[in-house]
Design a protein around this nucleic acid. Structure first.
Lengths: 115, 115
DNA sequence: TTGACACGTAGGGAAACGCCTACCTATCGT
DNA sequence: ACGATAGGTAGGCGTTTCCCTACGTGTCAA
């Protein structure tokens, strides 16, 4: 039923846990598909390290690579981010309700009796 | 302007990177505020380990604790998740547009000329 | 007050992470 | 064919993560 395996979900969240990788996603979002060196120019880090980050992002499905001559063009793949948004949805009422002042009530309702 | 410091954003994403911690959030969301032992019952893990996970979640602002006698009641705090949703927003068009078949066009447009 | 209970903290160890310096392959230009 | 360029891979190394087993602290009940 659910298109996201637990392992895939884990890879996505783990990929997003690193600030460099989030910045790579932003660069691809704002700058469009780019080769590795163009991305690496934005970081105080050697290129091989960035390559490893790109591998993590690729394994999470967050970027794809397309070979063009001797360069690899990396492109943002946002589908896994849509699944992160889906993951967030059940929590949404918790920050909306709290805004309306119902939060405390709704929080305490399911907490009836437990052994 | 931005209420989220980079360090705070990092703590939130890092906290979400672990499956146990995500499950804790789900338990608090579906079961309401709970003491530590009630949460620990759901995991194949010693209670002190779960305490450490709760500390990570608390440092990220994702849960709060309230003392009640000798137990600590943990409660979901969803505000940081709202900021994750805000973080996702600029990516949203990338999965929406792709659905409509415009993705490839929009991807390539910003990628004009770079040295 | 004495024990039991709920929980956090300390400290340790295996594994993963994130960076580095070589080094290798593949492609382009001359 | 040759050097230069783009980028992945290997291996090392310090740090962090995540689990564990003690142990310490505060609270309740008898």
């Amino acid at each position: 039923m659910n298109g996201t395996s637990a392992a895939a979900e884990d890879r996505v969240f783990a990929a997003l846990a690193n600030a460099t990788r989030r910045e790579v996603l932003r660069l691809l979002r704002d700058g469009g598909p780019q080769p590795v060196q163009a991305l690496a120019d934005h970081f105080a880090m050697r290129r091989p390290s960035l390559s490893e980050h790109l591998k993590v992002l690729k394994d999470a499905g967050l970027v794809s690579e397309q070979r063009s001559g001797r360069q690899r063009i990396y492109r943002l793949e946002a589908a896994p981010l849509a699944e992160v948004q889906d993951w967030l949805h059940p929590y949404e009422r918790f920050w909306r309700d709290r805004m309306k002042g119902l939060g405390a009530l709704l929080d305490r309702m399911p907490d009836d009796d437990r052994p």
